[in-house]
């Protein structure tokens, strides 16, 4: 467990994010502690993914304050990369590596000793056993998405950042993912996700942040789920 569990994993105070100095949404304020999950909700293009990119260090904030695991964000720091796992919508794979080998690369690259058992478990959990020896080119977009998600769980982490993890997943896999994220919280990890899925918010999130142009608000999960359903009837 981390040395200091009382300190928030993510602390965003009036965080402004954007491109070329122009913010894409209103300032965002929230904290995320270990064992908790925060969902970013909002319309398409509202800035949810941009906030996530700032949290994982792929974008410098335009203003406000942001700290991750008690220090300022710097993905060049090995400790940061060890602690923060992210699953974005990167659809890029080594063409000559099989599904299983991609997971081995992640697990062994992070120094996991039980990599064989771990990879087998993840293949089973994410419905990829039959495709373990397949090259990425032979996978459907949903299977590639599951591979990305599995890789997020093949490594150590304190914070798991997911950008619309429900995309390209069927209902059963969405439910399984929700349970996986609940387990993640119970194991002591923190989860920050951007989503359009009200069921995922209800099942996983302890709080939601509604990201918008004018003002961002912290909402209880129920209210956020209702808002999503209203925005995406």
């Amino acid at each position: 467990m981390p040395k200091n569990v009382s300190q928030p994993v993510v602390r965003a105070q009036d965080l402004l994010v954007g491109y070329g100095g122009a913010p894409v949404c209103a300032p965002v304020t929230f904290t995320l502690n270990l064992g908790k999950a925060v969902a970013l909700v909002g319309a398409n293009g509202s800035g949810k993914s941009t906030v996530l990119r700032a949290v994982i260090g792929l974008l410098d904030p335009s203003g406000g304050k942001l700290s991750v695991l008690g220090a300022e964000v710097d993905e060049r720091d090995v400790a940061f990369r060890t602690a923060v796992a992210s699953v974005l919508d990167d659809d890029a794979y080594f063409p000559a590596l099989t599904v299983a080998e991609h997971l081995y690369l992640t697990a062994r690259g992070h120094g996991m000793l039980g990599a064989d058992e771990l990879v087998s478990r993840l293949l089973e959990e994410f419905g990829l056993v039959e495709h373990a020896r397949s090259l990425p080119v032979a996978l459907s977009s949903g299977q590639r998405r599951r591979l990305l998600l599995a890789a997020g769980f093949a490594r150590p982490r304190s914070l798991l950042v997911l950008d619309e993890p429900e995309q390209r997943l069927d209902r059963a896999m969405r439910d399984r993912l929700a349970q996986r994220l609940v387990d993640e919280k119970e194991a002591g990890g923190a989860v920050l996700l951007a989503t359009h899925d009200p069921d995922l918010v209800l099942a996983v999130a302890d709080r939601a942040v509604h990201v918008a142009d004018d003002v961002t608000r912290v909402l209880p999960p129920g209210e956020a789920a209702t808002l999503i359903s209203r925005e995406n009837p």
Binding site: M1, P2, K3, N4, Q7, L34, D60, P61, S62, G63, G64, K65, L66, S67, V68, L69, G70, A71, E72, V73, D77, A79, F80, T82, A83, A107, H110, G111, M112, L113, G114, A115, E117, L118, R121, L122, F153, A154, R155, P156, R157, S158, L160, E184, A187, G188, G189, A190
Partner: peptide
């Protein structure tokens, strides 16, 4: 970067799917 340097990062991951080696 506008965030404050608020200290050293906690460097022990909270969740580990297997025993960690080198």
């Amino acid at each position: 970067m506008t965030s404050d340097p608020v200290g050293e990062r906690q460097d022990v991951p909270a969740v580990s799917p297997a025993e960690e080696g080198e």
